[in-house]
């Protein structure tokens, strides 16, 4: 488009104020947009949040009231919450989710960044083949792997029908976590970020006597901190909310994660919406609070990783 190019040049040569005056698009009104735009966006925003408000509202309603349609409960009660906490394994599911998502996140952060660092900063025979092999795993959908993973777990006796001791928990957690302990996407992402760090930094550190692991740990990691943070957030959220694999692999009620536990409320006690809404609130609240606090970082991280890939 030649015209676009010439007008761009023209726009550059003119004094900027003229341009702004001529087009009138950069006026700095404090609202920025017309009032109806705010109204539309707010209406859309309501559609996003009303289901959550309805969830909270239902969770505070006593059983006879849950089919009424007032947003404010007439006789608010905590019964649903005490039922969820005392009569179901919800606290255990919460702990299970926290532990499995936490360990998985640490593992992904460490191994993916280490592999990404090596693939970006070392030269060795077979490097290209290894990188392509790791990348190729991105093309395989999880759905294709769950059946072999399941058979692998059965053959290795990792599937627990009941939980009696700490050993069963350890094996159970392992079976939930093992497929996700590293991710090809994370390796790819970290490699992209490590490549943008100049080699001189590492060479200088080598001369100062920093060990090879020290190069990764003390020089590499701190310089890609935003990317690691983004990777951690994604991994944690993904595992906290994961459903298909934990559903397949957890037989014992005590080993379930929150999403799997919630999904079984329906079959166990007929769709118990009072329990479901209370537990959904308990599952949603921590994530929403964390998101509200770190909104800026999380959104920047998503944009960052989304664009890099």
């Amino acid at each position: 488009m030649a015209t676009a190019a010439t007008t761009t040049a023209a726009a550059r040569t003119r004094p900027r104020t003229d341009v702004e005056a001529a087009i009138g698009m950069r006026r700095r009104h404090w609202l920025g947009g017309p009032w109806w735009l705010y109204l539309l966006l707010l209406l859309g925003g309501l559609c996003m949040i009303v289901p959550f408000l309805w969830m909270l509202s239902t969770s505070f309603k006593p059983n006879p009231e849950i089919y009424t349609t007032s947003l404010i409960p007439q006789h608010p009660t905590l019964t649903n919450y005490t039922n969820v906490l005392e009569k179901t394994h919800f606290p255990r599911w919460f702990l299970n989710s926290l532990i499995t998502a936490g360990i998985t996140t640490l593992s992904v952060a460490f191994f993916d960044s280490l592999a990404g660092f090596v693939l970006a900063k070392y030269n060795f025979p077979g490097k290209r083949a290894i990188f392509i092999m790791i990348l190729s795993t991105l093309m395989v959908p999880t759905e294709m792997l769950v059946l072999p993973w399941y058979l692998m777990s059965v053959n290795n006796h990792w599937v627990r029908g009941d939980v009696t001791g700490i050993g069963d928990y350890a094996v159970g957690y392992w079976s939930i976590m093992f497929p996700g302990l590293m991710s090809g996407f994370g390796v790819f992402l970290m490699r992209q970020f490590f490549e943008s760090i100049p080699d001189d930094l590492f060479d200088a550190a080598r001369i100062d006597g920093v060990s090879e692991f020290g190069l990764y740990w003390r020089i590499g990691l701190p310089s890609v901190r935003p990317a690691i943070a983004a990777l951690c957030i994604f991994t944690f959220l993904g595992n906290w909310n994961a459903f298909l694999w934990p559903l397949i692999i957890t037989n014992a009620d005590k080993l379930r994660t929150i999403p799997v536990g919630i999904s079984f409320f329906s079959s166990d006690v007929g769709s118990a919406y009072d329990l479901i809404m209370a537990s959904a609130s308990l599952a949603t609240l921590p994530v929403v609070i964390v998101f509200a606090i770190f909104q800026r970082q999380i959104i920047r991280g998503i944009a960052l990783t989304g664009l890099k890939s």
Partner: peptide, 18 residues
């Protein structure tokens, strides 16, 4: 932006039941 992004950080299972 917070309103629009809210569902994405919550569990799809919870959201489905809502």
């Amino acid at each position: 932006r917070f309103l629009y992004f809210l569902p994405y950080v919550t569990a799809l299972v919870a959201v489905s039941w809502i």
